[in-house]
Design a protein around this nucleic acid. Sequence first.
DNA 1: GGTTTATGAATGAAAG
DNA 2: CTTTCATTCATAAACC
Lengths: 203, 203
Amino acid sequence: MEQQTQQQIEDGGNNQAAGTNNRWAPTPPQLRILKGLYYDKGFKYPTPEQIQEICLHLKQYGQIEDKNVFFWFQNLKARERQKLKEFWNVRVGGSLDLNFGSTSSTDDGRSIDLNFGSTGSTSTDRSINLNFGSRVGYGVDGSIMEQRGEYHQEIETLPLFPMHGEDIFGNMKTTSEGGSGYGGGSRISLELSLNFYGNADIA
Amino acid sequence: MEQQTQQQIEDGGNNQAAGTNNRWAPTPPQLRILKGLYYDKGFKYPTPEQIQEICLHLKQYGQIEDKNVFFWFQNLKARERQKLKEFWNVRVGGSLDLNFGSTSSTDDGRSIDLNFGSTGSTSTDRSINLNFGSRVGYGVDGSIMEQRGEYHQEIETLPLFPMHGEDIFGNMKTTSEGGSGYGGGSRISLELSLNFYGNADIA
DNA sequence: GGTTTATGAATGAAAG
DNA sequence: CTTTCATTCATAAACC
């Protein structure tokens, strides 16, 4: 995301033949379309049928399977939520990274960077990342479907100021030393499992 | 690969001030604390809330964000797993299966089953499986599946290669769910050393 | 300065 | 949906 090169596998529509590549990676057009759906159209909850449709559509831009589309949406959703939960990028007093879903141009487009303060240094990545998901934007290619029933539109707010009090470090009760012992629910279940099925490709 | 110098970034607690530095690097105190959590406390699965706490705590030692903490734990876990896998793949050339549990007991449970040597053709199915008790499963990929939950960070899972043993905090208290009666500094250190190499003609 | 190592960051895939 | 795993990319030091 913050990276700009982020080089792709770049086999432009026919991967998987070139040397042991097993993991799907979206081609640039595929990624553009997927992001267009997600960010611009706010299309985040494709049904299985819609997944098929999207996948079919994307096939002209490179090899892809249904499950790739499925995972792509799932991961993106999960990571946006995770980001909110951990307040990633949320920092006050640096640069602002507003994410509007506009028709801006670059690979992932739709980000406007406002830089406040810190005259002269593009340094620390203090940033706020606002994400206004759904817009009415343009159709991806003019063919893809409608929303999944109602808007399922999730919270797109951001918790600017984390409030939490506890501290795992806070007051360790310092059981006088490296503290083994001490009762409590000390369970000593121990299991150990190492499993190596032979994909030995080590050097 | 195995390197012991373990060089430090060494920017003395204030990095990132000199332009164009975008990648976080832990300051020595931060790294010390993080390692203390991971190795000494066996704290390897921080929840998002705990990540925030850790991050907050580490801020006094230098700039840091939640995602840095998140990635730090992710990477360390992943690389430890990877290292173990490589280690065993290199050292062990047969298959070994120890089973001290009641799983698949023919009569009594507690069976030991050692399989060295190639049972059959040149199968690449080298595997080691030590199973004491039966609670943890392992995925199809052999990764160790610990359950999540209250005591997730309490369990010490196979510190096969303890790197160091410094102790940072006397104790650690997890955030808000303190009711479980865990959270002591008890550290179950299990060391398992199989020294095969040398005369190993087990393949 | 090219190569290797260490490690932060990203993301596809999958488990639970 | 949530969390973790596996693999990969990227990059800063360290090494030669």
